[in-house]
Structures are given as C-alpha cells and as structure tokens.
C-alpha cells in the first residue's frame, strides 16, 4: 500500500491529533483496505466520510491502524461497533468496552454507533447480530448497557435498529416504542438503517412507512443504506436477508428520499461488506445518496431562509 507509515508516537500527545472535518449531510462508504490505493489515487477531491467496524482496529498495531490513521487524515470517520452485545442479558464485557473507548479516544470519530442486538452469551461469541424480545425487562437492561457505554466513552452513541427474521412471543411493545423509550431514558441518538426497516417490515408483514411514522426521526444522527437478498420463509413467503452484498434496492432509495425529506440531510452510509466491488462502484452508490441529500439540502436551506425572512 502506498503512503502508509507507522507513527508510534502519535497516540501519546494530548489534544486533537487529526484535522476536524464536517460530516453534516455527507454521504460515506464502508472503509475497505483493498480500496485504499484507489481512494488515495482518486483525483477528484472527494469529501465523503468512511465508516469502520471498531473490532477490526482492536489489535495492537500493524496495517489496520496505519490504514485508518491515513484515511482519518483526509476524511471524517464514523466508528461502528458490532460486538458490544448491548442487547444481551449479561453484563457488558469490560475489556471490550475499554478497547472501544480507547479507539474513540485515539481516532476522534465524528460518529460513534452500536447495535440494538446481541452477539455474545456465556463464553461464546456468535459473530451475528441476534434479536431480542421487546419487554420491560429488556428495556431496563438495554438502557443500563447504553448508559454504561456512554459513560465509558464520554459521549453519546447512535443506536442502530436491527434487521430481524423472527419475533418473540413474549414481546409486549413494538420496536419503535422500545427505541423511543430507550432514547428517552439514555439520551442516546439513533442510527436509522433504512434497509433494516424495509427488511424487517417485509419479514414481519408491516408497513415500512408506518414504522417510520412511529420512529423518533428527530433523534436520528446517521442513516445506513445497504443491499439485501431474497429467500423464503416456512410458508413460501418472501423473507429478506440483510446481506450487505449488493446495491441498494429501489424501494430502499424511495424510503430514504422520504426520510431525508422529513428530517433533512443526514450523514448517510452505503454499507457494503461482502462481495465488495471495486472502489468506483461503491463510490457511485455514495454519489447517488449524496445527490438525494443535496437536493433536500437546497429545499431545507430555502425553508430556513423563509423562516428567517
């Protein structure tokens, strides 16, 4: 990889180690190391942001840190945790929380997010975002976990809505009611994954628009868009899988347009985690999101002018 170097003394100094970048209304992409040479060689001075999975940077050193430090110089970075197991019944893994906090400190990400899901139980790590029932008991537990994370990192996190394939008979409230109450109790913000809304709505037979009208859009700080795959459930009905392995579906683009129309331009990430395409393909997908954001930015700007005038 070109232009990568180890800066062993960098972690030690206090204060801002990286330039401050704005992220408002920007589109971004998942950061994949194989794209780094193309990103660095890209003539077009792209202002997009990059999102990384926190766990991939929890090793002591080596190429992952060199790559992230390099990209962080020129671009805003979003730190996305996938393994905190916030939605699990057991206490959070303190060592993991410490590693997460150290990354926030080291890379000064503009956005920090985690999932409403769990992945660890007992001694085993299952490497998947597993679902939870929505009850008073889980509400209390998840709120405690979010308080603990926010305390450890000294800032607010954005909590991402899951894509799910099944429901729990014991659930006593809807996902949107659950998320609303979490926000009220913990003061966290939200990462709205529009593809997850579409996937879950299809899988559970409700309307994505109804979900969005019950969802606290005012607390959203970031949007995710991704591709999904199609399977069938036990009765041959369509079951969507949150596969992150292809372009964003048309229906998800339309929902995104509606969401941005309601809450204004938001940092928006194209998630693409397997069958990863060449950089120009991923970049084009981010540009498509950026053009929708820019179109709404113009009308939101006008509204502001009217309000002021």
């Amino acid at each position: 990889m070109p232009e990568l170097a180890i800066h062993p003394d960098r972690g030690a100094s206090a204060g801002l180690r990286f330039p401050a970048h704005a992220i408002d209304g920007l589109a971004g992409t998942s950061f994949k190391h194989q794209h780094l040479p193309s990103i660095l060689a890209d003539e077009e001075q792209d202002r997009g942001f990059f999102e990384v999975h926190a766990e991939n940077y929890m090793g002591a050193g080596g190429p992952p840190h060199a790559a992230l430090a390099r990209i962080r110089e020129d671009h805003p970075v979003s730190l996305h945790g996938v393994a905190m197991s916030i939605g699990g019944p057991r206490p959070l893994d303190k060592a993991h929380l410490g590693r997460f906090a150290a990354l926030v400190e080291r890379y000064e990400p503009l956005l920090v997010s985690e999932h409403l899901a769990w992945s660890t139980h007992g001694t085993a790590y299952y490497n998947d975002l597993l679902p939870l029932p929505y009850t008073e008991a889980t509400l209390r537990r998840v709120s405690e976990h979010i308080d603990e994370v926010q305390e450890a990192i000294g800032r607010r996190i954005l909590l991402e809505n899951p894509s799910t394939y099944l429901l729990f008979k014991e659930s006593t409230m809807s996902e949107t009611a659950f998320i609303r109450e979490i926000v009220r109790r913990t003061g966290c913000g939200l990462l709205l994954d529009v593809n997850n809304v579409f996937v879950s709505a299809t899988n559970h037979g409700y309307s994505a628009l109804d979900y969005l009208s019950n969802y606290p859009l005012g607390d959203v700080g970031e949007i995710h868009l991704a591709g999904h795959a199609e399977q069938q459930d036990d009765e041959g009905d369509l079951l969507l899988i949150d596969s992150h392995d292809g372009p964003v579906a048309d229906a998800v683009w339309r929902l995104f347009d509606i969401v941005i129309g309601r809450c204004g331009p938001m940092p928006t990430l194209i998630e693409w985690d397997s069958a990863i395409p060449d950089w120009p393909v991923l970049k084009a997908e981010a540009k498509a999101a950026q053009s929708i954001l820019d179109r709404h930015a113009a009308s939101f700007g006008q509204e502001k002018m009217h309000a002021l005038g």
Partner: peptide
Amino acid sequence: AFVAGPNCKAADRRFNVYRNNVTVSL
C-alpha cells in the same frame, strides 16, 4: 418455542437464517 413469524407463523426457516449466519460467518 418462544419465537415465531408474524401471526404466529412457524419460524423454522427464520431461525435457520441465524444458524446459517453464525456458522457460515465463522
């Protein structure tokens, strides 16, 4: 026994998505 699809539909293939995600990703 405590999971289901919408309207109490069977959830075997739905649960299998998680089995598959875990095993295949590992």
